[in-house]
Design a binder for these strands. Sequence first.
DNA 1: TTGCATTTTTCATATGATGAAAAAGTCTTT
DNA 2: AAAGACTTTTTCATCATATGAAAAATGCAA
Lengths: 246, 246
Amino acid sequence: MEVFEFLSDTQGKSLSTLASDLNQSPATVYRILVTLGGRGLVEFDQVDQVWNIGARAFVIGSRFLRRTSLVERARPFLRALMEESGETANIGIEQDGHVLFVSQVETRASIRAFFPPGTLSRLHASGIGKALLAEMDMQRFEKFLARAPLESFTEFTLTDRDALLEDLQVTRQRGYALDGEERNLGMRCIAAPVFDIHGEAVAGISVSGPTSRVGLDQVSRLGQSVLAAAGKLSAAIGGKSKQQMP
Amino acid sequence: MEVFEFLSDTQGKSLSTLASDLNQSPATVYRILVTLGGRGLVEFDQVDQVWNIGARAFVIGSRFLRRTSLVERARPFLRALMEESGETANIGIEQDGHVLFVSQVETRASIRAFFPPGTLSRLHASGIGKALLAEMDMQRFEKFLARAPLESFTEFTLTDRDALLEDLQVTRQRGYALDGEERNLGMRCIAAPVFDIHGEAVAGISVSGPTSRVGLDQVSRLGQSVLAAAGKLSAAIGGKSKQQMP
DNA sequence: TTGCATTTTTCATATGATGAAAAAGTCTTT
DNA sequence: AAAGACTTTTTCATCATATGAAAAATGCAA
């Protein structure tokens, strides 16, 4: 199991590299790989003599998205958002202090942001992440903070607790979050939370694109679009934000 | 491991149901689930008291698609194909006698075919499947046949070996495959193979839609579009069909 | 409160995971 | 072709842990 997970983080490695990295005997790792291979969870690349994640893992993992209809229902809204904004539209959820990107509708523009499904990105340095953080109660937020330091990705990343809290306050008032080159230089992302029937923010919707197209003068316009799309999806799943709760 | 895989096939089950289905003691299954749960590979739904595939499995499985750049490179072609045809464009690969759908670009049309990533469908009753079968040598084809009977899904499904062979012959001559309500009544799918640098058919591209829009009079037109898109993707990855091999 | 079903924990035993070592395979150099 | 180095695969004895039975805990309905 450890081999399986390690392999997913650092794919395309030989048996001896894996054994060395995992500090386990090659014989053990070999047998695990062969067992996993027999089930299709990993695959051996004969050409390069390396091991990779297998198709069966993809099939199994895909089942994760089928537990709710959220992603399926989100797709028309994501498409409309992509078309309205001209940028790639994403939906992501919170997972262990990270945003997990689960689905995208890509723009046709030649320079585009793309986070393939399965991408993990730190909450504090992500539009969707901050939209979700802004909806957390302080207890949960403190728990998030205690998990790991606020890692710096660019000069713009918010690594100070108070700076982050202030940003989240602005996010709540504004209704949408802005990742202004905090994760990747030259990229901006605007996101809003999606609420379920309990008033919980269960996902975030965003548009992301290069700073050349998503200038600061575009943020407000795109923010309204994202907010509207997130609101429509929330409504579509019978959701409402806490302000609308009785 | 067996629990993990079983859970992906039949999600949302309670501990005792799983234990009964797997013919294992509840204690064993419980501990396996708890171990898998600790790693995020499965998750317990407190509300319904059932176990589901977890986010970590999705993350790991997603790595399967990152082994090659095929899917990423295919997306622009899929998008163009969707826009040209007005139908949902898919890319799938062969996996253990099935088509594994790995990515889609959905149409906006109100009635649409959608096979979420991770969907498995029998080769012989699928456009992509038949496009790939048509490129197999007889040895591999016989191996495919020996694997399982040609299951019938609709009255149109090809369940006779000779009928299938004839269809594949037509597919080869024509360049594209047609699934004419063979998997789902009311649905048609047109597909063509994508070749790699070795001249191997490594994937299939298709458009699929309801018979109301994909009438028999549309098949030839759409076939040309699919064929062109598959050809472009093949060229983009340095691929060529066997006929083009020296 | 009682009874029943399900889940969770404990415990003794059996199974199989483990690493060392040997065997086999692969590649490069002479 | 032979030798050497390295990697992978198989064998084997040992021990760690997976297993199921049983007990304890929890949850739900009457």
